[in-house]
Design a protein around this nucleic acid. Structure first.
Length: 566
RNA sequence: UGGCCUGUAGUUCAAUUGGCAGAACGUCUGACUCUGGUUCAGAAGGUUCCAGGUUCGAUUCCUGGCAGGCCAGCCA
């Protein structure tokens, strides 16, 4: 599926129908309304692609970016900045339509007065505990507040004094007068305003009353002329209230549509849990490459195109499901295969001396930059008598189906020569420290004039020319597909994979990598996709492994291993 | 012993609105290959949650079950 291909879903079907019936004058205006209290994650990317994607697909459509900043206690400018950066990076644009709920506070206040005047809202003196008691339970109706029938004048005066700061936090609330016996708890006189003497990251000290989500959100949508207000499933129960407020006010009334949030195997997606991973130092920060955050994926080497494509493939639905993380990995491989420059890098070096190759000779061999993209051209790679290969590419006693180097066996060094292993050198503990090989000068470039074949082609790096780098290998952050699957008395943090990061220090890379920049994607041939981490310095390059290449041998080896252990 | 929502290959989604249940990912097999990558070809995989009903015909409509999700913040 290419980036430009469309895919329909129940949300788009609703919008199509509304356009056909001219429900909103043919207009389509969506919005992405993050609360700036954390970083965006791949689940948000699903919502972003949905809302901004719809805006791109339909005529007369646009998508607003609106910060739903109605709770000063949790929100910070740092998050606003990070969210803006992440959405831009994902490739979406809101034009001049950047909004903040806090800019609507005055307007919301006026609407509240309108509701009070209509006898549909009242100031309540019940404490939080009392409100809870009065609310009733899922199966029993609630009781009406003793303050429910205050006069309009008294409510108006009290509400004004709430705003003026005459009461302490929690002393009073403004509540909608709906139905304390509604089977939908949201309709049991929900709180519209609470008193909070807190400094807001944008409004400062201007307000000491703040609107609750249910009251604020519909108004934000209405004020901006949103036509389709797309949110996640847990707000389904809130839709009657969303509708009630807008109906009472008689204002523009968008359609709220709910869809299922994204879950991914081997990771967690709740903001609370991600924040906990950061706070308790299980990860290095919100942008740790193991995090499912947009910034974490970016640092890991994921591309916007891969993430967008992933969101397209998973679809949109109304039931909770968990997407196999293998699909995300497939999407990044698919994109990087087409675009990433190929290089040679040895993660775990094993030294080879090619005994019949001249001491001081250096040859510069042609290597293809990207077989998927001829326009990427070629480069020169230095070859000499002492090289490194991957330790995993040699076995002294090769099992069946192991095609790579072994004593007496001939393999090809990519773009270079055929070599044959003649000797294995070990230290006193029996560890292999070096290999001796001979090369066939007639196979220069990697082709044998006599047409003989080898079963394997290995990547390699000339020892004399190699640059040394640190490479960070990442595994899933959790050991279980569902991190929340825990026994009694344990919790999700018990499922954290303590080996999810492995740092390797003396990796040997071809010299062309010396000039690479942060974020650039490479394919280390036969190994995986890597990118330069921001922790890199002039002296020391650090690479993140984005994802491995598909590895048939690893699969066979794993199978052999499990069979052995049976 | 409340209300709302949802049940289709292992997973995520389709099925032109009542007309032969398909795709992608994953898995497995084979071909090709100077990446055990890519690409290509193929295979396995289904009681469409269950039971009734309407209909020539039901994944689709109706009824009743069952299972899962959400809701008792002055969070969003």
């Amino acid at each position: 599926m290419s980036d430009s291909e469309k895919r329909t879903d129940f949300v788009r079907e609703i919008i199509k129908r509304d356009i056909e019936t001219n429900r909103y004058g043919g207009k389509v205006i969506t919005r992405f309304p993050p609360e700036p209290n954390g970083y965006l994650h791949i689940g948000h990317a699903k919502a972003i692609c949905l809302n901004f994607g719809i805006a791109q697909e339909f005529p007369n459509a646009r998508c607003h970016l609106r910060f739903d900043d109605t709770n000063p206690c949790k929100e910070e400018q740092e998050y606003v900045d990070a969210i803006i950066e992440d959405i831009r990076w994902l490739g979406f644009d809101w034009g001049e339509h950047l909004y903040f709920a806090s800019d609507y506070f005055e307007k919301m206040y006026e609407y509240a007065i309108q509701l009070i005047k209509a006898g549909k809202a009242y100031v309540c003196d019940l404490s939080p505990e009392e409100i809870r008691e009065y609310r009733g339970t899922l199966t029993e109706p609630g009781k009406e507040s003793p303050y429910r029938n205050r006069s309009v004048e008294e409510n108006l005066e009290l509400f004004e004094r709430m705003r003026a700061g005459e009461f302490p936090d929690g002393a009073k609330t403004l509540r909608a007068k709906i139905d304390m016996s509604s089977p939908n708890l949201n309709m049991r006189d929900p709180v519209m305003y609470r008193i909070l003497h807190a400094k807001h990251h944008r409004a400062g000290d201007k307000w000491c009353i703040y609107p609750m989500y249910d009251w604020a959100h519909g108004l934000e949508d209405s004020i901006e002329g949103i036509t389709h207000s797309i949110c996640t499933l847990e707000f389904e129960n809130h839709r009657p209230l969303y509708d009630w407020f807008l109906d009472q006010l008689g204002v523009h009334h968008p359609q709220q549509i709910e869809f299922a949030r994204l879950n991914l195997t081997y990771t967690v997606m709740s903001k609370r849990k991600l924040a906990e991973l950061v706070e308790r130092k299980y990860v290095s920060g919100w942008d740790d490459p193991r995090m499912p955050t947009i910034s974490g994926l970016r640092r890991r080497g994921y591309t916007p195109r891969a993430i967008r494509n992933f969101c397209k493939r998973i679809g949109v639905n109304k039931y909770n499901s968990t997407v196999d993380i293998a699909l995300l990995e497939h999407c990044i491989r698919e994109d990087l295969n087409k675009r990433a420059q190929r290089v040679m890098g040895v993660l775990n070096p094993l030294c080879i001396v090619i005994e019949n190759y001249p001491q001081d000779k250096v040859e510069y061999l042609d290597a293809i930059n990207n077989p998927e993209d001829p326009s990427a051209g070629t480069r020169k790679v230095p070859f000499s008598r002492v090289i490194y290969i991957e330790r995993d590419d040699f076995m002294e006693e090769p099992p069946k189906k192991f095609f790579r180097l072994a004593p007496g066996r001939e393999v090809r060094l990519r773009y270079a020569y055929f070599i044959t292993c003649t000797d294995v050198i070990k230290d006193s503990d029996g560890n292999i420290v070096e290999l001796r090989c001979t090369y066939d000068p007639a196979t220069r470039g990697g082709d044998a004039p006599d047409g003989r074949k080898v079963k394997a082609t290995l990547h390699w790096v000339s020892a004399e020319h190699a640059i040394t780098a640190e490479i960070r290998l990442y595994e899933h952050l959790f050991t279980k597909e569902d991190p929340n699957d825990v026994e009694e008395g344990r919790d999700w943090t018990d499922n954290i994979n303590l080996d999810s990061i492995k740092m390797i220090n003396d990796c040997k890379l071809e010299p062309s990598l010396a000039n690479s920049k942060v974020g650039e994607n490479y394919q280390f041939e036969r190994v995986g996709y890597f990118c330069i981490d921001k922790d890199s310095t002039q002296e020391r390059l650090i690479f993140n492994r984005t994802v491995t290449l598909k590895d048939t041998w690893a699969k066979i080896a794993k199978r052999n291993n499990t069979n052995k252990n049976k």
